[in-house]
Design a protein around this nucleic acid. Structure first.
Lengths: 228, 228
DNA sequence: GGCTTTGCGAGAATATCATTCTCATTTGAT
DNA sequence: ATCAAATGAGAATGATATTCTCGCAAAGCC
């Protein structure tokens, strides 16, 4: 899409600056409108999700809800997956902020990490009351279809955890040969997936009480299972 | 499925035994046939999967490949998800056996665990060469639509790891207050999901070399990240 | 052996979605 | 005012899963 009939780059200096500015001004409004429309789609989708507590929505639903048209939707998104990705990224970014804020309330590196881990766990757990981002719901789908983009979406959280982990390392709280970034990645994945997996309805199998808690996950990530 | 028009349990004793036997005999053949058909479906699906290296197959494909009919398919399966579930369970069961066998080659409890973890990791990693069960491919989908069944499918592996973990505990290799079953669950999830997440194409982002290795996962699960 | 019930193959019919396309209208820029 | 791009409405397409209808053919029964 969109390779306009702009002159090649070498003519940039030939074009009078006023023209470029004019074009830009003219473009800005259009971009703004586009952003608003995108925003409406995103809001509608988010509303539907939190409303029916699932990520199984239809593009049509989003379109109806946002009072726009299919035409418009596909003009702004490459497909449903881009909408999902956008929501996903947003949710992760917001979560990262939230966790960052929570960790800011403490100074001890390990405690900051603990707070972060436990909050992340709560945020990732499928909430029966459906007020949570629910972002772990579509993560799996996207992980299959667009793994690269998912990794990108994870990056705010990864950065945050890497930072926390690095602090901990600086404070000498980690193994001597610890690689903060890798430990951050491992910890994140562990927390997120275990939260998601454990959260469901309590099984009625012979042995119950499986529901992993945030504390257990923290214990596990920080201590492992070995006695040392 | 299948609550036949059998009389309720309290009439069991009223029915003459010969009649039950007759019915059973008559039923047995049918059941056998059904099993063979189911098997053909499963084999066909498995063949397609390993052939095209993906789990994105069509019910029609399976039907064609198995030289049966859609009618038959839906007579034996409640839907595609049941087929997936069946394959999934099978793969997990086989993997559990394989891991069990591998662990049997050692006597030291921690070493047994290590071998198990590392083999599980390899089995769960998306293999470019597509000879692996690939069971981690449809796990995410099923986890969304049928979480309970997925948990059931996990049980062979969970049992195995619980056993290994219990041995380790008995040998005093775990924390004093360790809960083997929970540690087993945590470890399993951690290994499986991290294997799956790390496996994709190496990102080209600024910082690379992210690909988590089996050793790292083992280190993480057994030692955690804290210095203690 | 005929007769009947049941299972099954072939494939048409439905249903659900995502995605695309057409046409007329609206909106924004000049 | 005028022209081009954006939109809305909704039909058309395409891919799949799932169901249904029609007969045939094997399995069990007399």
């Amino acid at each position: 899409m969109a390779q306009k009939t702009d002159p090649p780059a070498n003519t940039l200096s030939e074009e009078p600056a006023w023209k470029q500015r004019a074009i830009e001004r003219s473009t800005k409004a259009a971009k703004l409108r586009a952003e608003q429309r995108v925003e409406r789609f995103l809001d509608a989708a988010q509303a539907i999700i939190t409303e029916k507590g699932t990520t199984d929505f239809t593009v049509q639903e989003v379109v109806d809800r946002s009072r726009q048209s299919l035409r418009s939707f596909y003009q702004h998104f490459d497909g449903k997956h881009e909408l999902l990705l956008a929501l996903f990224e947003d949710a992760l970014r917001r979560s990262a902020d939230q966790i960052h804020a929570a960790a800011a309330g403490h100074t001890d590196p390990l405690l900051r990490l603990k707070v972060a881990v436990q909050l992340l766990f709560e945020l990732c757990r499928p909430d029966p009351d459906a007020q949570r981002p629910l972002f772990t719901d579509f993560a799996p789908q996207l992980l299959l279809s667009h793994p690269t983009e998912v990794k990108v979406a994870h990056s705010p959280l990864l950065s945050l955890f890497t930072e926390l982990m690095t602090e901990a390392e600086a404070a000498g709280e980690l193994h001597p040969d610890a690689k903060p970034r890798r430990l951050a990645a491992l910890t994140m994945q562990t927390v997120m997936f275990n939260a998601q997996a454990g959260g469901g309805a309590p099984e009625d199998g012979s042995d119950d009480a499986h529901v992993i808690t945030a504390d257990e996950v923290w214990e596990f990530c920080s201590q492992g299972f070995s006695r040392h």
